[in-house]
Design a protein around this nucleic acid. Structure first.
Lengths: 346, 346
DNA sequence: TTGTAGGCGTTATCAC
DNA sequence: GTGATAACGCCTACAA
């Protein structure tokens, strides 16, 4: 016999007060409106009955669902779980829960998911999927829904965001390579319609210029997605284009993994023949052989900071749009080595 | 000006009917109660206004939130993202959304999360965190809430579950090792208070017995958690106990990774000196060096099947409790090799 | 086939 | 300080 859940009315009856009074006593915000004595009586009554407020009813009345939508490309990408945990943990401590939506990079799917979430009255959005021009952003903002971007950012300052400083990260990677003596440095660029792909490529260009190194067209390959498969394809392209690279920087770790595969297939040794650096420092990336040298940033903290920003917005706090950069850090592991003239690429 | 969301009343007014009629027309279940012509009018009116039913109000009325709670130990464990995606995809196609809760294996945290979720009127639970005796299960079931177990199972048939056939999986791993000539086979057992740890250890015991091999106490180590760190500790214990193993089977891939680290530290080569097999075939585990031989099962499908079971329960379908086993499959990679007398463990 | 009315559990706005 | 009342948006007997 599923005992029908105890409601506010039950609590009120047991405490001998009106439901409205019980409501006031139970809500920390309004408790001061009620006498300390009755408040106590209500609280004990609630505890005694094991009262649990019905969030659905509350939402209907208050128009706040205490739910936020989180859109990511794919939970299977190891970059996202720590970010999501950061989000959930920070949001949870303020009584919010997250609805996770995977878009698989598909715009149509993304629209469906957003519809779903808006139907559930989410109080805000965290988007890790932002393309540089995204109609959804405009629409959500128009509807007055707080939006925070994560990992990627919009092209202007129109949305708050939390990202790593991508340009600086790539510069650190390139400096590392040049300090090892590398000059013919190839680059596997990520998709240029997302800010990470674009900013990192820009970082590569400025870093090479700063080192007085020229970029040959044959030493840059553009991936159509941040995937192992595309990394493999691009690396193969670099290897067969006669570019003679002694080092390759990849737009992210997935692309770097694909690069590993291409090197193995070509019977080239990393790092003896070619050095490789990635970006992101994905979980478990240090278990690869060789362990990947890459640009790290605090994934979990990206999540918590983004949640913090979103909470501020949902609380109606006014002020300028905040764009938060977290500092990257180069993690040197086994995939980069000094230029070795005994082992030319050919 | 955030145009106040369009409601059923607006649609009804535009269609020139009573809200109740509009409701019936909009709900596929009750559409046949209304004349085709009016239904059409309502539908176009709804489309025209961009009407989106308010799920909160609906939930309050129907007591169904179309939300399910999913409890996992930690999203950062790569085993879970594919399972969660399977759950979300299957649930989503029936209009459900998942609330993800990370418990970190902490019972108290788990209780808090469950409370949170019940306050949100979840229609059911998927638990990947089930300990062998779990008061929460009893409570949820008592409250009439459907519960499906995933990856781990309860000790009896009291709950539907979807798991890999753990015993069979371990047997396949051990057979593989013995067929390579290994006889002194060590085992790193997972925690014995969860069904995966227990069932796999049992599988090890029966497999060894079937091969007429004895298990020395010194060849089994018990991990306190399915973690890299515990795998490292246990492997070191096996290596220093004078057990002389030529192969080690690990309770899961994380433990196997820890094993790799211990071997490296001891300057032992895998697989030349010692073969290692894991369990789970985690994503990216094939990128390790050497690529890990392990027992695979279809993670995504575990999620979809569990969702299917839960949906049946939430639809009130009666019948016997279903306990679903998915077949394991041995994936032979580079971490296992024939027993090589030229390379004794010492 | 359609309209009426009441209520799901909570909170905001009045009065007292 | 507390009680009464209405309303959030939707669904569903019941009546017409």
């Amino acid at each position: 016999m599923p005992e029908t859940a105890t409601t506010l009315k039950d609590v009120a009856r047991l405490a001998g007060v009106h439901p409205a009074t019980a409501s006031r006593a139970l809500n920390p915000e309004t408790r001061l409106l009620v006498s300390e004595e009755t408040a106590g009586r209500v609280l004990t009554a609630a505890a005694q009955l094991g009262y649990r407020p019905n969030t659905v009813a509350r939402s209907l009345r208050t128009k706040k669902s205490h739910t936020v939508g989180v859109l990511i490309p794919d939970l299977n990408n190891p970059l996202f779980p720590p970010i999501v945990r950061g989000l959930e943990d920070r949001l949870g401590s303020d009584g919010y829960v997250a609805l996770i939506g995977n878009t698989d990079g598909d715009n149509e799917r993304e629209l469906r998911v957003i519809e779903q979430m808006r139907a559930r009255n989410v109080d805000g959005f965290v988007l890790a999927t932002a393309h540089l021009r995204n109609p959804i952003l405009a629409e959500a903002a128009e509807a007055g829904l707080p939006v925070v971007l994560v990992n990627r950012m919009a092209s202007d300052y129109s949305f708050p965001s939390v990202t790593v400083d991508n340009e600086r990260g790539v510069k650190m990677a390139i400096s590392h390579l040049t300090s090892l003596g590398h000059q013919r440095i190839g680059y596997i660029a990520g998709p240029q319609d997302v800010s990470t792909g674009l900013a990192r490529y820009r970082g590569f260009q400025t870093a090479m210029a700063a080192a007085h190194l020229e970029i040959q067209p044959s030493t840059v390959a553009f991936a159509r997605a941040f995937s192992v498969q595309e990394g493999y394809r691009c690396a193969k392209q670099l290897l067969t284009s006669g570019s003679d690279c002694t080092a390759v920087a990849a737009g992210n770790d997935m692309l770097a993994i694909g690069c590993y595969e291409a090197l193995e297939e070509a019977r080239l040794n990393c790092p003896a023949d070619i050095s490789v650096v990635g970006f992101n420092n994905m979980p478990f990336i240090d278990m690869l052989r060789p362990p990947l040298t890459t640009v790290a940033f605090p994934h979990y903290q990206v999540g918590t900071e983004a949640a913090q920003l979103l909470i501020e917005l949902m609380n109606g706090e006014q002020g300028p749009v905040k764009v938060l950069y977290l500092a990257p850090e180069l993690v040197v592991r086994g995939s980069t080595a000094p230029l070795n003239s005994a082992h030319p690429a050919h």
